[in-house]
Design a binder for these strands. Structure first.
Lengths: 242, 242
DNA sequence: CGGAGAATTGAATTTTATCAACTGATGTGG
DNA sequence: CCACATCAGTTGATAAAATTCAATTCTCCG
């Protein structure tokens, strides 16, 4: 009942770098098993150290930080192929939490194996760093959007990004992607109130640029949406899969 | 005219992890030389790939991203001990720019040596990943501050953070640190307008919590400032130095 | 049928940005 | 040495953006 890395469906996607035979073997040897979690469950928690690392095989979730005041910043949306828990593995403690939005299936790795990986498989260790750098890039872009863009631009940008990530992880076909997140999650990601996010979304819907409803996101007019965002998205490059 | 890693003044600071003799040897062997740049010079540029990596030995600067509209988000302030250019080394291209604010001295490493480091010195490779994870943490915190905190909280938080980083890099004594950045830089980091930042700073000054003037930051009342920020800062842990 | 969670909408209020003007320090060329 | 430009910081007035509050709808589920 366990998918071997050899048969991993994510490997076949264009957005992930090709695996060598030895990559497959190394990764498969480290894979402890699979974890299936229900929708709405905590996976990693801020301030705790986790003995395990995960690669998302199926399902979606959110990474977030919570303030003393109860406000919450969604740092990013989690898609298949994402690597979770690196911070706890490297620095002893997570600085954010991760929660499942849909049911999820995770490949489980052991934290203790990470140092061994660095010793025995430098190429894969390099890939781990690559993934960390990739996440840094995503956070930089989010910070720039939240810090400098107006609500309209931000929401348009956020929708483009959600579609881009959906496509890269094989969830979207054409310009239609399943969107299991609530508007509250999206508002917390964009640093906007729920009400204002909702109004901006309906404005975008009326302008016939994109529609987010009933669990699906449709982008009707990619160019128009990019124009509203004030920017085209950075091209997505191929990244390593752990 | 080149400081050997053996004599590196940063090594002696509490905020950096202890170096083993072999760490020193490895790092010293990779150090190509030193680069001295004037204040206000570009060091790395968004969208370009750099053949070199740097560790800041002296001086301060800013990392930032620029939008098409001309607006700018300062991602972080650069202090001694910071590692620059990892993204370009790993992913071929920088996603942000780095500019010196004061005159700076940088240790220069060659990008091509990075893979060799991963092959020959797994412990140091692990440290590189640690640094990347550390930067991710800083960006997460900044995103949370910009996305969820009010202007008052944000500015108070930003000042605390500047002081914390100044102390960690040996620039501050007591609660007084040199502050070569302009208010515009700080405003761009906090996602606020210059005018509003200025007014908030003078409010904090009048409340006798902290004073930023004439190139120096003084924190008169750390507890009061933390209260205004709505949070204490996360304790700073010891991190690796590359 | 009742209740809970999510989305939606209108109205009032607060926060923050923008515009504009002024100060003080610094530096340059005639 | 002085007139003049420049740049960072400061302040007041006004406008725009986004939040908060409140109420309503809709769907799903027990």
């Amino acid at each position: 009942m366990r998918i071997s890395c050899q048969d991993c469906p994510l490997r076949k996607l264009d957005s992930f770098q090709a695996f060598s035979a030895s990559d497959i073997k190394i990764t498969d040897a480290l894979k402890h098993g699979e974890l299936r979690v229900d929708a709405g469950m905590p996976i990693l928690e801020e301030g705790t150290s986790s003995p395990q690392l995960y690669t998302v095989l199926q399902g979606q979730g959110v990474r977030y930080k919570t303030l003393e005041s109860g406000r919450r910043q969604v740092l990013s949306f989690v898609f298949p192929g994402d690597f979770l828990g690196l911070q706890a593995a490297v620095m002893e403690e997570m600085d954010h939490s991760v929660e499942s939005t849909t049911e999820m299936v995770l490949c489980v790795f052991d934290r203790k194996d990470l140092r061994r990986l660095y010793r025995d498989a430098p190429e894969r260790a390099f890939d781990v760093t690559w993934v960390a750098a990739e996440e840094e890039t995503m956070l930089s872009e989010a910070l720039t959007a939240v810090g400098q863009r107006t609500a309209k631009e931000r929401v348009a940008w956020g929708l483009m990004r959600l579609m881009q990530r959906s496509k890269a992880s094989g969830l979207a076909r054409r310009d239609r992607a399943p969107m299991p997140f609530r508007q509250t999650d999206f508002a917390d990601a964009m640093g906007l109130s729920l009400v204002h996010t909702n109004k901006t979304l309906s404005m975008i819907r009326r302008a016939e640029l994109a529609t987010w409803a009933d669990g699906w996101l449709d982008i009707h007019d990619p160019e128009g949406l990019a124009e509203m965002a004030g920017t085209p998205l950075n091209g997505d490059h191929c990244r390593p899969l752990i």
